[in-house]
């Protein structure tokens, strides 16, 4: 089993699915030649391997998504790349009013088997280019929303997403592209809608996904040295939300912190906390806590950007607060 990057894992998933199914194509801004293929290099080399199937598009996100929807209706399986999640806002009508509604509103007559790949994230790019919209996508019936944290999950979930008959918003993360992890050479698939333990522990449960899974793991290693044993549930899919493992974990630890990168108010953490207390109120020894991004448009300055985002130290602080408080 080789250790590869998250970026490479995504590319392998794309390659394997393109080899498997000739109706799979990749359309997006600068996916062919720019910087070797893709603003973040995910599609590098694929245009050469699959002539005519990886195409650059105009910078017109509403059309990238809309043309993708139409092509999916017409019998293809397009993977549409939106360079960053920020630009999905331009295509929001196409995603919410069209992709998500075709199947139900037309009573099952139309299906839209497409994948919208796009990264959340930040990197000193200021307010319009440093955002996380997990909660927005997860709010919409008709979408499936996937947010993998590891190369292993990224590959298995992207392959499944491409084969899925519904529109899947596949949320990558800028800060994860270069991270490494073991990925088997042989083929495997990970189903949509199934969460995963990323660490087993007995004292407190962290429910998280995406980049914050990695921050939670860092926090857990430090907390372990202090004797606090953290359990980490990685949701992997944000809609439909699989809280089965989180629920199982709460029965054991009786303490939960939801860790998310996005804005706290009306964030996905609020939904998860509400659902868990509905189902497991009697198991809880403490109110469910949340770690989330601060509610400001992201500033450019290094120190302000860092202050806005949640990191391992914020997770550690939240765990300390929960473990020390008496209820």
């Amino acid at each position: 089993m080789a250790e590869i990057t998250y970026r490479e894992a995504l590319k392998r998933a794309l390659r394997e699915e393109m080899q498997r199914d000739p109706t799979v194509v990749i359309w997006g801004e600068d996916v062919v030649a720019y910087a070797g293929g893709g603003a973040y290099g995910v599609t590098s080399g694929l245009a050469k391997e699959f002539p005519g199937r990886v195409r650059d598009t105009p910078i017109a996100e509403e059309a990238i998504i809309g043309v993708g929807i139409g092509a999916a209706m017409g019998g293809m399986r397009p993977v549409c790349e939106i360079m960053t999640v920020n630009f999905t806002l331009v295509a929001w009508d196409q995603i919410v009013n069209h992709a998500a509604k075709q199947s139900h509103m037309f009573n099952g007559q139309i299906k839209v088997p497409m994948v919208i790949r796009t990264p959340n994230g930040h990197g000193r790019t200021a307010a319009t280019h440093s955002q996380n919209f997990d909660a927005w996508f997860a709010h919409v019936p008709g979408l499936k929303v996937v947010a993998p944290s590891t190369p292993y999950d990224a590959k298995g979930l992207l392959k499944t997403s491409i084969r899925d008959d519904d529109p899947v918003v596949f949320l990558e993360h800028l800060q994860l592209y270069g991270t490494r992890g073991e990925v088997p050479d042989e083929e495997y698939l990970i189903p949509i809608g199934v969460s995963d333990y990323k660490r087993r522990g007995k004292d407190v449960t962290l429910v998280t996904w995406g980049r914050m899974t990695m921050e939670s793991l860092k926090a857990a290693r430090i907390l372990a040295e202090e004797g606090i044993d953290v359990e980490i549930v990685d949701l992997r899919t944000l809609r439909p939300l699989d809280l089965s493992l989180a629920l199982e974990s709460v029965h054991k630890t009786n303490r939960v912190i939801v860790v998310e990168e996005g804005w706290r108010t009306a964030g996905l953490g609020a939904e998860i906390a509400a659902s868990l207390q509905e189902m497991a109120f009697n198991d809880l020894d403490a109110p469910i806590a949340r770690v989330a991004g601060l509610e400001v448009p992201m500033p450019y300055a290094r120190n302000l950007e860092r202050a806005t985002l949640p990191f391992a130290e914020d997770v550690i602080a939240a765990v300390h607060a929960m473990m020390q408080k008496q209820y």
Binding site: S103, Y152, D165, Y197, L247, M279
Partner: peptide, 27 residues
């Protein structure tokens, strides 16, 4: 959805408590 999935969540709350998926790949 054309292709329903396990633990389908509807209207913000689960119709029934979720069940744990067995035999799901994890590395």
């Amino acid at each position: 959805y054309q292709q329903p999935v396990r633990n389908m969540q509807i209207a913000g709350s689960l119709i029934r408590p979720p069940t744990i998926a067995k035999d799901i790949p994890t590395n």
